[in-house]
Design a protein around this nucleic acid. Sequence first.
DNA 1: TTATTTCTACGTGATAGTACTTAGCTATTC
DNA 2: GAATAGCTAAGTACTATCACGTAGAAATAA
Lengths: 215, 215
Amino acid sequence: MREAKISVAIADDHLIVVNGLKAMLAKRTELHILFDAANGEELLEALTVHQPHVLLLDIQMPGLSGAELCRKVHKMYPDVRIVILTSHDDSHLVRLMMRNGAAGYLLKNTGMAELLTAIESVMEGNQFMDDQIKKNLVHEALTGQRTSRYEIPLTRREQEILRLIAGEASNQDIADKLSISLRTVETHRFNITHKLDVKNTAGLVKEAIKRGLID
Amino acid sequence: MREAKISVAIADDHLIVVNGLKAMLAKRTELHILFDAANGEELLEALTVHQPHVLLLDIQMPGLSGAELCRKVHKMYPDVRIVILTSHDDSHLVRLMMRNGAAGYLLKNTGMAELLTAIESVMEGNQFMDDQIKKNLVHEALTGQRTSRYEIPLTRREQEILRLIAGEASNQDIADKLSISLRTVETHRFNITHKLDVKNTAGLVKEAIKRGLID
DNA sequence: TTATTTCTACGTGATAGTACTTAGCTATTC
DNA sequence: GAATAGCTAAGTACTATCACGTAGAAATAA
């Protein structure tokens, strides 16, 4: 019965991971792989043709930033359950992705059992989170301690601008690219610098890398 | 016939990758997975018990650096053929790993066919290299151009200054710290920027990180 | 020892970023 | 529908960096 199957799509730029996931999921008759994509553009294109029930999405891919991609996909196809697949276990990123419409969050060092549980879980409409991440979040909530500096939130625009700065763009370049005034870019840059408590461009770039906005 | 089988070990901290590789390789009856390890320590410990014919080694793992690990394993167990598994295709790294005893070099975005070819190839005593990497190396050799920036040498002083720049120091800070003129620092900075062919501070910081000068 | 790097340093004008403050407009949330 | 948060933008004055060219002294390699 075709209708009963859960369709899964995989977006990851590492073919080995894709093939690995395929091989793992192929054993389960209740699942079938709809398609896979190696980058954001490919993913968006494939989604226009057919939508899977579950999307396994790596957030570290060339091209579009993972967070933006997640948001976009969720907005365009709200029925697609997105499970984030990553090697970072930062609680801020988790929150960000969850806010951006992700239904699940898995670390790449989880096993097959957990992967299947995650898929089942999101199909039932629940959220799923890696145990390790859950532990971190609980610990944070209990102690009130922030485990990371990623906690300082940047707005979407600020993140975008930070990404461009780290991409070697000058303020003028950014203004042109975003079609806003140079002064606006300067204001954003000033705000970001103070929010993150860094001294200059060097500090900004390092933060951008830590936050996974580039690389 | 057990003796005819090629034994393979996998060292990768991403369980999904490990499971993926296992699933892929399990299809081949001529192969069998001896063990897998999630980090350098685990790998070294497992190797004391039994040695595989081929070791698939991820060079980005927590703990010991990939290059060191490769060197160590090759020195202690010269019969183990090491195939590097990575997402970086930098030619400098390739050379380094090959010098450190690696027999093969694979990108994580290669397919199953290439993985099997690599294993066969190193078992026959040959070196194996990802096509993309091979292309890069050939191109470099032909044109004399370096595709990798790691190759461009910085003088000691330049490295020192680059490190300080990446450490959020201003030119004046650097001048004070090194007891040299501000103008000298500016000259160095100018030279570094041009040597590395980057546009601004952002580019410098990223290069500093790639070169391991900070972090 | 000579040749080559490397490190040092200055001139000068142009371009870019810093350090704030204030403020109107627009989404989104309560 | 009021409050909050985010995006936009300008003013002003200052500081930092960029882009070269030039060039002497010291260290290092041929």
